[in-house]
Amino acid sequence: MPKSATDIRHFIIAGVLVAITTVLLDLLLKAILPMPVQGSHQAQVIDQLTSWHLTLIAFLFSLVVVIMLYSLFVFRKKDGDESEGAHFEGNTVLEIAWTVIPLIVVFVFGFFGVRALSDVTRAAPDEITVNVTGFQWSWLFEYPDSGVASNELVLPVDRAARMDMTSRDVIHSFWIPEMRVKQDLVPGMTTTLRFTPSVTGEYTVDCAELCGLSHYSMVAPVRIVEQAEYEQWLAERTAGTAPALAQTGDETDADTDVETDADAQSN
């Protein structure tokens, strides 16, 4: 083992160890952080950025921890050795390097971050608009184009959806993990969330903002279906064959709504 702390061999050994650890850690991180089904176009963008983040995390974690562990083993004090370590107080070139390089990385990630953000929030021409109302502790989905109201969110696959959302009481937050994106519902204002479902299936929309006693159970079913099935579902609803709930989207009668919805929830 080389004696001097600035011997080049130390840095070569540590460098190789950092590289190996980075690869292993990257695999490990992606194994212990399994994402839900990639259910929307936005999810692809977000998962790509997440993957870059995890690789960067694996590298930086390895860099610090490997060099730290290397020092702990190689530069540990021998028994009875009361001498001091090598005297160096710092290195301005190194300090500037590890200020400037991270700064560049920050701006690179900033650039990709902004690009991903604009990708996941971009409006599409042919959007389906759903008016979403959150209240303690349930959801109401209204389709303004057809006048349908429902406690279940049904959307066609591969078509952009736009949620115009508000809350009747406290702050809630709209989150379908498979779609990735999330947006708060705030009383007194309308917030918007866009996503384009890409995989058919049954999901749930969960309230992600603590909203009181039954926050944990503020969950509504979501179905992503083929366009034809979606149209059929809308038609059944408009024809009045569905439960009476479709009539209760009236904002002026909030109390009845809550009761009806609570009933529907418990069914």
């Binding site: 001097s4 702390a5 600035t6 610090v64 060099i67 730290m68 020092s71 702990l72 530069f75 540990r76 004090k77 050795d81 001498s83 001091e84 370590g85 090598a86 160096f88 710092g90 290195n91 190194l94 300090e95 590890w98 200020t99 991270p102 700064l103 920050v106 990630f109 900033g110 971050g113």
Partner: peptide, 23 residues
């Protein structure tokens, strides 16, 4: 993201402190 820069300075300086010491 900028917070990472001064925080990184701390981590790297700690490594520099340990490197070549008598730990």
């Amino acid at each position: 993201l900028l917070v990472a820069v001064p925080t990184g300075v701390k981590f790297f300086s700690w490594l520099g402190t340990m490197w070549g010491g008598k730990l």
